[in-house]
Design a protein around this nucleic acid. Structure first.
Lengths: 147, 147
DNA sequence: GTCGGTGCAAATGCTTTGCATTGAT
DNA sequence: ATCAATGCAAAGCATTTGCACCGAC
């Protein structure tokens, strides 16, 4: 799929790109350029430079294989695989930062309907619920928010 | 509200913070540090430094008055007011980058239910639908995405 | 043999921070 | 008077880019 995309664009399928693709395919959930690189180095793959990781992540995004996923207050760009039954939805604790995936068909149906109503064609979506996790709620070390 | 928050934290309510708060309250939709600063300079407000804008935006976020909103591929942090009937939902064109707000009660109901089911307390949410806008769909200058 | 890819290091650009001065309380 | 806030300029840091060499086609 990536190979096909590259060929269509007259781009080359190199060992580095193959390694990065393999590492990406093994991810489960969110990842970023740096965590991916560490993962690759921890394993075995030929040592790929950071610049190439960034360049290849961009290609993978253009190819529709991964999609960026912006987390609240994140300083780095997170990605996840764009296809298959990957969670597009998360619930994030505003106090601890802990997050967990949500798997919910209704969100997909809703997004399709909303797009259709406007004459758009839905391709994907991101749904992030911000809230207070059970652990945080029982921790009284924070005063109540201003709202 | 901001003032109350500052007092509670033994922080000071300064002219700069008042100006920034005022500018923030006038925003409609998304803004970022730089656009806010330009807006303020275009108007009249005392000339506030960029550093102070960043510092104050952080405080406003801590106070629960604004919330960050990460857009796909954005290089800067976007914010919007955290309360009131502000759109938390957008539909973004993956080809042109154009986006428009969605206003939909069902999303709020859905997020509340999802949080509740997990023992969380929902505070806010972000819902972004990625798709193809009508203009882009009729423009054949882009090949179809790999997915 | 072409022309795109890679690694390195330097550059970019948003955001943060150190420090001396200013100002709210 | 205190002690935090501001402005400036200098960091920081993720990401991008220029360039010389390398390698897929």
């Amino acid at each position: 799929m990536f190979r096909r995309y590259l060929k269509a664009q007259s781009l080359r399928y190199t060992a580095e790109r193959a390694d990065i693709l393999a590492a990406v395919m093994e991810t489960d959930g969110l990842f970023d350029a740096d965590s991916l690189l560490m993962e690759m180095r921890g394993q075995n793959s030929s040592d790929v430079s950071k610049a190439t990781v960034y360049r290849t992540l961009r290609l993978l995004q253009d190819a529709g294989i991964i999609m960026p996923f912006m987390l609240l207050d994140a300083k780095v760009t997170h990605y996840q695989l764009a296809y298959g039954r990957r969670p597009s939805d998360y619930i994030v604790c505003m106090q601890t930062g802990r997050f967990e995936p949500i798997d919910c068909d209704e969100v997909v149906r809703l997004r399709n309907r909303l797009a259709e109503e406007r004459g758009w064609q839905a391709v994907g979506h991101r749904f992030v619920v911000y809230g207070v996790s059970p652990e945080a709620a029982s921790d009284a070390s924070l005063e109540s928010p201003a709202q």
